[in-house]
Computed example of a mutant assay.
Amino acid sequence: MGTGQWTVGVTGATGYAGGEVCRLLAGHPNLRLGGVHANSSAGRRLGELQPHLTPYADLEVRPSGAEDLAGYDVVVLALPHGESAAIAAQLPDDTLVIDCGADHRLNDPAAWARWYGGEHAGSWPYGLPELPGQREKLADARRIAVPGCYPTSVTLAMTPALAAGVVEPEIVVVAASGTSGAGKKAVPHLLGSEVMGSVSAYGVGGVHRHTPEMIQNLSQAAGRPVGVSFTPTLVPMSRGILATCSAKLAPGTDATAARAAYENAYADEPFVQLLPEGQWPTTAQVLGANTVALQIAVDPDAGRLVVVAVVDNLTKGTAGGALQCANLALGLPETTGLPLVGVAP
């Protein structure tokens, strides 16, 4: 089954996440982009809207209705939250549907109602293969919910420590993100003149919608409820997340035990790079790569473990994660067509 060919339809292809899916498909040997979809720009050439996607420049953007998406082997939904569920419900059961939005990430209907509002569309297998026990759920799946970009970095930063019991289940996260995480829609506070030379906090006080997703993932890893205090910040770059996560060390735990937990967890993970001691991750080193780079340290005076993780929010944080899951669901080697090396400088 590892040499097959599948057609892919991408809706939301004119946005940042959808465009990144298309970019990665250009280098994938088994997945062929069969069509691009977006309601607001239907009828236009993709090259007008995504000029970097030269192999697909002459593709006509088609509408995003379920009837327009029904003919593909794989459908990637790169849509705002609340828009994926209705389309997905109308697609054939044997179509591999990968939702890059939030509609199917949360297991708890009450959490969905609180953080997003409206009716919960149900949960799908969660598309973070590195989460313990998750690969088996993704193999042969036909519906997959891709994680949010912040939860990807934070979950991978803290899962080994929580699973090994080396920290207490109360996590503090301060994460910096580039502006592409907010999407392509033009809004005044994201204009270049507003962002350049300035760093700002937003979603302060536990109100960011990715918080319940982090709690869900980390509680699963810990086997008990985990509290998360999350503060996101916006920094003047287009791509990337740097998440600084910390937690109080469990009694009797030291730096050696903490590092061992990470070495054991990620020794065989192709997309997670635990850096050599003393080397700290930068967003530049994962630019365009489907990788998370991280480093840990123990602050002995504070008695806390500190983990810094970086991810390209559009690659491993969204589109790369989607194709990683597609590889698993289709029986392909997990690394097929996915870049492991970033772009520098």
Rank of each mutant, 00 (worst) to 15 (best):
V146Q: 05
V307E: 14
T336E: 07
A201G: 01
T315H: 09
G127V: 07
A309C: 02
L162K: 08
W6P: 03
A85D: 11
E168P: 03
A250V: 10
D268V: 09
T244Y: 03
A261W: 03
Q324I: 02
A255H: 05
I171C: 04
T233F: 05
V306R: 05
G117I: 09
P281C: 08
K185P: 00
V341Q: 07
A88Y: 11
A86P: 01
T211W: 05
E67Y: 05
E194F: 07
A175S: 04
V154P: 08
D108R: 03
W6N: 03
T7S: 15
A319V: 11
R209N: 13
A267K: 12
R23D: 09
V166F: 12
R114K: 07
G342T: 08
V8E: 04
T11M: 11
Q5E: 13
E130P: 00
V207W: 07
G183L: 07
V298A: 10
Q134L: 10
L287Q: 12
P63H: 00
C22S: 15
V8P: 06
G71Q: 15
L323C: 00
L46R: 10
S177D: 01
L162D: 09
A88V: 04
V228S: 03
Q220G: 15
K248Q: 12
G165I: 10
P236Y: 08
D94Y: 06
A201H: 10
P236Q: 03
T282M: 03
R209I: 09
S246G: 02
H189T: 04
I241M: 02
R224L: 14
A182K: 02
D254M: 04
N217G: 10
G197W: 09
A257I: 05
Q273H: 13
L305G: 07
R239D: 12
A326P: 02
H28F: 12
V195R: 14
G133F: 13
N30R: 15
L191R: 15
I296F: 04
A42C: 12
A157Q: 03
S180K: 06
R142M: 10
H210I: 09
A145H: 02
T244S: 11
